[in-house]
Amino acid sequence: MYAVLTGPVFYLALAVCLIGMTVRFYLYFRGLSWQLDRVAYKAHPEAGFKGAVRSIYKWLIPFGTYGWRTQPIMTIAFFSFHIGAVAVPLFLAGHNVVLEQKLGFSFPTMGSGVADFLSWAAIAGLLFLVLRRLTLPEVRILTDKKDWGILLLTFLPFATGLAARYQVGDYGFWLTSHILTGELLLFAIPFTKLSHIFLFFASRAQLGMDFGIKRGGMKGTKMAW
């Protein structure tokens, strides 16, 4: 099991995720239409590019936008969750050992203290998002099974990873579960709402181009996100 998961399944999951998302990214931009979207993307590439970068950049910063500032508690939960969810998988020392072995390259790594902190912060953030879904009427009405599905899919690698980290009971079991759930997540990305991991950048870029080209950018007004 372990050998299969760390061997062929690992490569397959990674390939499905990366190729799947490359295709989706390509299809997204190919599907943009200057006339249907009413944004002259190609006529004004510079204004579009500036708008896109600004739109992405502003929203990546905690409290960087009016939207984030008007909902501070959500913002803290959101970033606690997302920073951990992006940084821990990519920069955990253990993950990079595997990467080096399997693919021959690795990212810079973070200390275990930082990794622990970010992981627990992510779990806390995620629990808050769950609580929000259960209690706020404006979120509850939107919530469907798929939303719970992706929350679970994201929760499992963290839970199993932490269980392995603290060697709760059978380390081997938790490690295998961790690899399995992590790979499940990779498989799911291109086919579920998790695609937002990549498509966030596409969608934000599009609206940024809209504002950069049509809605004021070319009049010299930067959008006050």
Binding site: F29, G31, L32, V139, L142, K193, H196
Partner: peptide, 20 residues
């Protein structure tokens, strides 16, 4: 096309639009 389809698909159902 992709703009609206993607919007409808990736909406995280977070409800942050409510108060706006």
């Amino acid at each position: 096309k992709s703009r609206i389809r993607t919007w409808l698909e990736i909406c995280a159902h977070c409800g942050m639009c409510a108060d706006s």
